[in-house]
Structure formats: structure tokens, C-alpha cells
Design a protein around this nucleic acid. Sequence first.
DNA 1: TTGAAAGCGCTAACAA
DNA 2: TTGTTAGCGCTTTCAA
Lengths: 337, 337
Amino acid sequence: MVVKLKDIADATGKSITTVSRALNDYDDVSEETKALVNKIAKELGYSPNTWAQRLQKQHTDTLGLILPTFGPRFSDPFFSELLAGIGNRAAQLGYDILVSTRAPGEEEEIAYRAAIQGKRVDGFILVRTRRQDERITLLQESDFPFVAFGRAEEKLDFPFVDEDGTHGMKVLVRHLTALGHKKIGCLAPPPELMFAHYRLQGFKESLTEAGIQESDAPILVGDLTQRGGYEQACKLLDSASPPTAIAACNDLMAFGAMSAAQERGMVVGKDISITGFDDIPMAEYSHPPLTTLHQPIYEIGGRVCEMLVKLIQGEALKERYVLLKPELLVRQSSGSV
Amino acid sequence: MVVKLKDIADATGKSITTVSRALNDYDDVSEETKALVNKIAKELGYSPNTWAQRLQKQHTDTLGLILPTFGPRFSDPFFSELLAGIGNRAAQLGYDILVSTRAPGEEEEIAYRAAIQGKRVDGFILVRTRRQDERITLLQESDFPFVAFGRAEEKLDFPFVDEDGTHGMKVLVRHLTALGHKKIGCLAPPPELMFAHYRLQGFKESLTEAGIQESDAPILVGDLTQRGGYEQACKLLDSASPPTAIAACNDLMAFGAMSAAQERGMVVGKDISITGFDDIPMAEYSHPPLTTLHQPIYEIGGRVCEMLVKLIQGEALKERYVLLKPELLVRQSSGSV
DNA sequence: TTGAAAGCGCTAACAA
DNA sequence: TTGTTAGCGCTTTCAA
């Protein structure tokens, strides 16, 4: 049924080896033979059995990506934008990408182990790094190639791309204080995530800078979804002395916060300022358009992918650590007090 | 470096064969031996080389998904929600999922051929079916298992899950006409997509039902993104006699249309009604929340996945054709004239 | 209950 | 320039 090398060998009267070499364009095969073999191969609709090839070659031309899902689903546009960047770049470089989703924990670790030991993939792209990230330890112990999107807390050495969340939040809070805000709430991500750490650090430092008391800067943790943002924002808005600005640590939570404010009859950008972080495509089209920090998610995906492929192919990385500065985009969701 | 069967064999003093059978829980291996082998295997951190296993077993436990991208990227939340549904169900069923992105055309066909011939995957999940869909022809000719999300124009027989777009649009337009709208614009998807066909059919039929002239129901084609929706909606709104309602054929375009209207100082849900289709998670949190047709995207992903696995495993499908009724969710983006 | 041996489809030394 | 041979790590007859 399926065409294999042997069929081409039979059809051409050549040996399997010769056919293999002709197909792979070795230069010790006559042009004549090559032409013949290629012709027949095309006629028969041959394409190589990937497993056999990989078993032999000991590499898979596949990159692994295990998305950490909190809760039953990840429908975060952030991930889909990232995945697009990774996937498209991978296709250009001749790599496939093997995706799965696993909640942080034992199952996740098993999945990594199985992929490494079973040689499912040549390397991993790690996303959303965590404090004490067992994935990093595991990968390093196994001496397995990987590139992370995000840094780690410990002084572990591994290649990464990350955005400077601390810097970003500082720029953002300065924007808010310049507008006259003196009471600013923050919608923070779960603290075990590294980016939560950096963004929160920026938030806190810039408060000190502006002379704002901790009591005037309530921080609530949300689960990064609209719903999470909505729920936490409600608490903020219904408190005794609600903030005049809410800085959400991602766009999705900012959208949730906007809903909460609007539900209470407030005009976002006037009665209250709400900001995000990430600049997902939706941010430009919310009502009002969201003031947020832009990170080039799609490009980051491509970049990470590229770095990993270099690593796998044993090439040196020009830059092992990439830290990007997010850019403040002031849109209409923030305004003066 | 990497642990293989031979290492366990050496460590236990058993043969490779016995070890293999012990690990796979054959009943012709003594309990004693099994226990020993499993213990040592765990100690050594063994997991099988996937490629060797697959070469031998002739199946891959992997499902293929090639996302059709129009334009350079797909950051459609619709796809990420679908992927989540597929991915999580696949993990439960012990399958991996191999994702790539390819624009419709020759490259896409090559990717399918290579995956089939090279036995990369056991089956395919086809999304966003098209008129004269070459993918379907190809898969059928190759007698390769697949399940589609979406129907095909021709009377081709293949298992699918789809939502009844015609019915959905009818329900929606009835809602709009009941609110008194007599001039309704439509933001349609590219016509080569099957779901465009069904949704548009519903739109047109319900206009006839309501006695609305074609001239009062302008249809503009957009590219399914917010930007596309925005651009086409601008044309509609800036025309000589703009519609009082805009029915977008997906949520993303509806968001774009909302921006266009708001930019012109209109209050959506009051000065103009705007509706979507899909009910992506964002729809609930837009401002105003979007009136749209709900389809259970996440669940559909899981369902399609399940059907494909059954097909691969040779089990009979209880339902070969699944047609779901989308449910109208009236939120605040639609109101009476 | 166990082991020897063949073979999945391919690539790559080594010979001819 | 070509063919012979071995082997990647695993499963599975077949024989002991």
C-alpha cells in the first residue's frame, strides 16, 4: 500500500542504498541514476517513513511545547499569538511542533520526562516560567536543549527571551501618577509565576518613587482571565475608598476590570483609569481602547523558536539572554483624575 | 546515556524480550519478574523510544492538525479555544497532537501528503472546511482517517461536527427584526469558507421571511479579524443610508464593527445594534457585552478529537454527523430601533 | 515462563 | 558509481 524505498529499488532495478542516496542527493550517485530514481519516486508518490528515519538519525525535527494550563482550559489569546509565532517560524525552519497542555504538577513532569527519554522532540520551548521551576531543573539535569520565554528566580543559567516587566510597570505607573492618580489598585497574577514577580516589583518600586503609601495601592491576585479580573476589580470598586486607577498585570484581566467598572456606570478613561499589559490584538479594539504595555508576542515566539533550533543544531547563540523593553501604548482607557 | 531495554535486561539478568513483555504486562511473565523489571525500570528512569516503538507498531498515537492561516498569523481566539478542547481531550485519550499552520494552497497540500505518507500521524482533524476542499479529497483518496469541524459543499461522505449556521443566523435576524430593524448590514466571511455559505444562507432566507429587500441588506466580506470588521463596518456606517443593525459572522469582526461605531460617537445597543457569532470568551466582556450565537467551541474540539480516536481504533461511531444548534445569547449590543 | 531471532524502514560504514 | 551489511530500539513470532 504505502511506497517504501524497496519499491523504488525494485522499479528502478537499483539497490535500496543507491535509491536512498539518490534521494538524499549524495554526490557519489550518477546524475542519470538520480534523475531516474527521482522520477520513479515522484510517480509512486513516495515520501519517507518518518519513524524509520528518525530512529536511524536520532533526531526528530520536532520542537516540544507543553502549555501550562491553570484550570480546565487555556483560551488565552496570548498563547495563541505566541503559538502562531512559534509555529510559523518552525515551519520555515523545517521543524514540527508538538503541543500539549498539562497543569503544573506531577502530570506535567511525567510528560516532560517521557518526551525527553522517548526522544519525542529535539528540544523544548518553556513558557511562563515559575519560581522554583522544576521543569528547568529537569531539563538541565537531562542536558536537554531548551529556550524559555521568561526568566527564573534562582541564578540558573539558561537561554531565554523575556520582557522587562519591572521596567514596563514603572513606566506605566509613572504615566498614571502623572495623570494625578494617587490611589492605584493592582490586579496581580498568581505569585508563583515569575512575570508576576517582575511586574509587581515594578509596581511597588514606582509607588515608592511617587510617594504613595502601600495602603493606597491594594494588590489583589487574579487568575489572568477576564472573569478573574472582573471578580477582583469588583472587590476593589466596592471597597470603602476605591482606587481611581487599576493596573491589571495582563490585558485579559483589564478587560474584566473594565466590565466591572462599566457595570457600575463608570466611564473608563474618565471616572476611572484601567490599564493592561501585553497588548494582545484585542486591546486596540476594546471600548475604550486599552492603555497597555506592548510586547511583540508573535515575534518573541519566532525568536525563541529560532534560538532553540540553533541550540539543537549546535550553533552558537549570538544572544543567550534577550530582555525586551515593553513599550507603553497610551490609549483611551487611562485619563487624568 | 539514555536508558534502553538492553540496560534493564543487563541489570536484571533477563533477556530483552522478557523485559519488553514484563513492561507491557504480558500474562506469560511471572509476577516476580514483572515486579523486578518494573522496579529496575523505574530506578533507571526508563521510558521507551517512541520512534522505535512506532516503527514497529505502525501507529503513532498522534493526531494531526494543520491550521489554515489566512495572512501571516492566526491569533484567532476561536482557534485557541478549539485547540484547548482538542488538546485536553487528546491528552486524556493518550494521544499527542501535532500542530502546524499552513496557508491554503500547495504548501498545505504537501504538508498533508508528507504527514500521510510519512505516517507522522494516525489521523487528521480538519478545521474550517472550504468549498471544493482539496484536503478532503486527498484524505479520502488516501483512505486516511479524519474528522472535520465543518461540512463540505459536495455530497462527500465523511464524519463531521458542525454547527447549524443557517439556523443560527435565522434566529439572530428574527431577533433583530423583532426589535424593529429594517435595514441590516452583514459582515460576511470569505465566500470560499463553508461556514460563510451556511451563515449567509440563513441571513438571506430570514430577510425574505421578514420582507426585507436585498438593497436594505448590504453584505460586505471581511477577513474575520477585528481590523477586517472595522474596515468593512466603516464602509457600512459611512454609506448614504447606513443600516441600523450589523450582523457580523464572527465575534472578532463584531468587535471591530463596535469600534467603528463608537468612533463615530454611536452608542452600541442603542444607536446601532451589532451582533456576532461564536461566543468566544471575550464576547461576554466587551463593552457593551456582545449579542451573539453561542457554540460550544471547547466541547466541539473534544468531541471531534474523540470521534477521530474512535475511528482510528476501528470502533463504530455512534453519530457520524453531528450538527449542533447554536444558541442565541442576547446581551447589550443589540436593542430596539 | 523465558530467550533467540527476525524485522519494522531507513541510513551509513565499508567493500567491490 | 554501486551494492552488501549492520544496526537504530523495539515488538513478536517461534522454539525451548
